[in-house]
């Protein structure tokens, strides 16, 4: 029974196993890669595979400044997206990846990689953050392996 659960867990988990569970809040599950000092927040998404389109990305990217403005209410200042790109892979689904940084309450620069991911069967949203190293949008599969 335990083995079955473990196997299904491994298959369901699309991030590297170096991420271990941390604090959990209603609706947002936290993970940590303690060695690389990367935090990860995962939440379910209402997105469908069809929603992740170039038009959708174009519309959503217009809201960057809105997020930057209202983000200050939630503890991340000067939110800035440096690059963003939509990846479409027939085997791995579609991923909209946003790379950028913001300033934490302690005044530290926090690098982030935000991923909206959907396949015809499931969809999820991921937020990778690190105060140590910046993420490279093109190498997103180093932390995310759908």
């Amino acid at each position: 029974m335990l083995i079955t659960l473990f196997v299904s867990y491994v298959h369901a988990f699309i991030i590297p196993h170096r991420f271990t569970p941390a604090e959990q809040f209603d609706g947002v599950t936290q993970y940590q890669d303690k060695k690389a000092k990367i935090d990860l927040s995962v939440s379910p998404s209402k997105l469908t595979f069809e929603d992740l389109t170039l038009q959708g990305v174009d519309e959503a990217s217009k809201l960057f400044k809105v997020k930057a403005e209202y983000g200050e209410m939630f503890g991340f200042k000067k939110w800035k997206a440096t690059r963003h790109k939509l990846f479409d892979d027939p085997n791995q689904g579609r991923s909209w990846v946003i790379e950028g940084n913001y300033e934490s309450l302690q005044g530290k620069v926090v690098h982030f990689l935000e991923i909206y991911w959907a396949t015809p069967k499931r969809s999820q949203e991921f937020l990778f953050t690190s105060e140590v190293t910046a993420f490279d949008l093109e190498k997103y599969t180093e932390v995310f392996k759908p």
Partner: peptide, 22 residues
Amino acid sequence: SELASAFLSGSARNFGTEYSKN
């Protein structure tokens, strides 16, 4: 669009991340 909506919802994840550290 759902994507734009999901994008703005992402603020909650940022908040959750920072709140967790704090």
